[in-house]
Design a binder for these strands. Structure first.
Lengths: 156, 156
DNA sequence: TATTGTTATACTCTATAACTATA
DNA sequence: TATAGTTATAGAGTATAACAATA
């Protein structure tokens, strides 16, 4: 056949693959997130960490790792960065001297209010072409992903 | 509050974020792909490359890069690997002596038949909990992602 | 001048093993 | 003995700049 001048490339096999479409859309969503959050210097994983600590103050590092699917070892430098920026603190756990209780600082809570507002705008823009009903339908479908071997842990 | 013993962590803010859910589901899909394809030693990007060349024989490296959202520079070692395994060949373009025409070898076509069959089983398992109607609805929603700045190019 | 393929390189993300101090 | 946090490290994935050959 060999008839690929320009614009006429057959991608139908990949377009009908849920796995491939998920990957492309996720990459585009990541790019949009970066654009929207450029003023805050916060990446998706950092945002997830701040969010889960905001909503669950006192969590340990292992609990955060498990909740977000991160490796304990990889969480350490991420927390170092956020703590170094004064957004959160590691305080000794009164119950277990091996672990820390994670809390947002006052500054971290302030920042998160602004970041959350910006994130809401990002979500709005991300799903603008789907409409509110489409967005809800998509969340329901994404929530319905359960397959054999889906332990949902340790992905980074 | 500080009442996170175990299993009661509030992830509602992230669960209602399309960006976050996309990321988690995409990672789980990647893991399942790896499990299903373990006998073939082929990664998602390699599968995408093989697929687009199978369906569009004679494409140049730049065309493959653009179609899949890869950087030209990053495609080179990927093609080196696939060519080294005898799955595809770079042949000189008769029209442009700077570029190559990419084709699957006979062995590559054979392999792709088996790989495609396995990939179909992967897609089936991946979307098993959604059902056929849910899978089609999801593909339609994923296809509907168009937002400002979505050039869909250069992501890797 | 611009484009194709290539090299070199750097930065991020992810994964594993091993260590320490506690439990 | 098991677990929490840490360190070191290795492997992918992804990004940019620059080069030679060709258009």
């Amino acid at each position: 056949m060999d008839e690929q001048e320009r614009g006429g490339i057959d991608l139908s096999a990949l377009q009908s693959s849920v796995g491939y479409r998920l990957r492309r859309v996720q990459i585009a969503a990541f790019t949009l997130f970066t654009q929207f959050m450029s003023e805050f210097d916060i990446r998706p994983t950092q945002f997830a960490i701040m969010t889960v600590i905001r909503d669950n103050p006192g969590l340990s590092q292992s609990q955060v790792s498990d909740a977000l699917g991160l490796k304990r070892a990889n969480l350490v430098p991420l927390l170092d960065g956020l703590e170094g920026r004064g957004l959160l603190v590691r305080s000794p756990s009164p119950a277990d001297r091996r672990s820390y209780c994670l809390h947002l600082t006052d500054h971290g809570q302030e920042q998160m209010r602004a970041i959350q507002t910006r994130h809401d705008a990002y979500e709005q823009e991300l799903t603008s072409s789907l409409g509110p009903a489409g967005r809800v339908a998509l969340l329901a479908l994404l929530d319905g992903f359960h397959f054999t071997g889906d332990s949902d842990g340790d992905t980074g």
